[in-house]
């Protein structure tokens, strides 16, 4: 069974009398353990697709299945609970809650799930260590660099041990060296722990590390590669 399956997903935005078709019938399957990049020029619909797969947004047409659950049939609150249990998310920037420390941010999802304090701190700490941030655990987001903040976001996604991690341009705000380091970390985690990753990027240098590349253009899938 695939982890993610999108069938004929269309997304139309309506605003001020203008209709914009962001996705024009996308079919996509991801199997467990994949490490896949979603590429395409800006405005091609990468973010929209990731948001729909995360249940942050609903498709106008089509079906979205994640882990055997049909997401587009769930209410907003049910989708939120589903993400809490099964999906990790990393965004381009401002991922962290500014009033929480790195450790508290990484443990936040576990805390919401109701884990005891020692347990969630142990797991969050382990995730931070895996991303090389053990010494920054007590710092607040504003005391961290951009790359460190993104690594905390990845740590938070991993600590929750989700089915799937979705990342929307995680390296866009980082310089290329830091960006590359982040992708390498993610790749290592994919290989060691079998976490399924799907991330969007338009940085060609990162593509050397992925197993599969899905190309999106003007709201359609236009090709796939297995480097």
């Amino acid at each position: 069974m695939p982890i993610v399956e999108a069938k004929g997903v269309r997304k139309v935005y309506r605003g001020d009398g203008v209709e914009t078709e962001a996705l024009r019938g996308v079919d996509l399957r991801l199997e467990a353990g994949e490490f896949t990049a979603l590429v395409g020029p800006s405005g091609s619909g990468k973010s929209t697709l990731l948001h729909i797969l995360a249940g942050l947004d609903l498709p106008t047409e089509g079906e979205v299945w994640v882990g055997g659950v049909r997401l587009d049939r769930l209410s907003r609150a049910e989708r939120a609970r589903f993400r809490l249990e099964h999906v990790g998310l990393v965004f381009q920037a401002y991922n962290l809650l500014p009033v929480l420390t790195a450790l508290e941010n990484a443990a936040f999802v576990l805390e919401l799930r109701g884990l005891s304090r020692p347990e969630r701190e142990r797991r969050a700490m382990a995730a931070l260590e895996a991303l090389g941030l053990a010494d920054k655990a007590g710092r607040f987001p504003r005391q961290l660099s951009g790359g460190e903040q993104q690594r905390v976001a990845v740590a938070r996604a991993l600590a929750a041990e989700p089915l799937l991690v979705l990342a929307d341009e995680p390296t866009a705000n980082l310089d290329s060296k830091t960006g590359l380091a982040l992708i390498e970390r993610m790749q290592a985690l994919n290989e060691e722990r079998g976490v399924t990753f799907l991330f969007s990027t338009h940085d060609p240098r990162l593509l050397a590390h992925v197993k599969r590349i899905v190309r999106l253009e003007d709201g359609r899938l236009v090709g796939e590669e297995w480097p």
Partner: peptide, 15 residues
């Protein structure tokens, strides 16, 4: 609002 959006994306229900 961005902070709240992040919190919801992490799985906090709107209510």
């Amino acid at each position: 609002l961005r902070e709240f959006a992040v919190a919801e994306s992490l799985g906090l229900t709107p209510w």
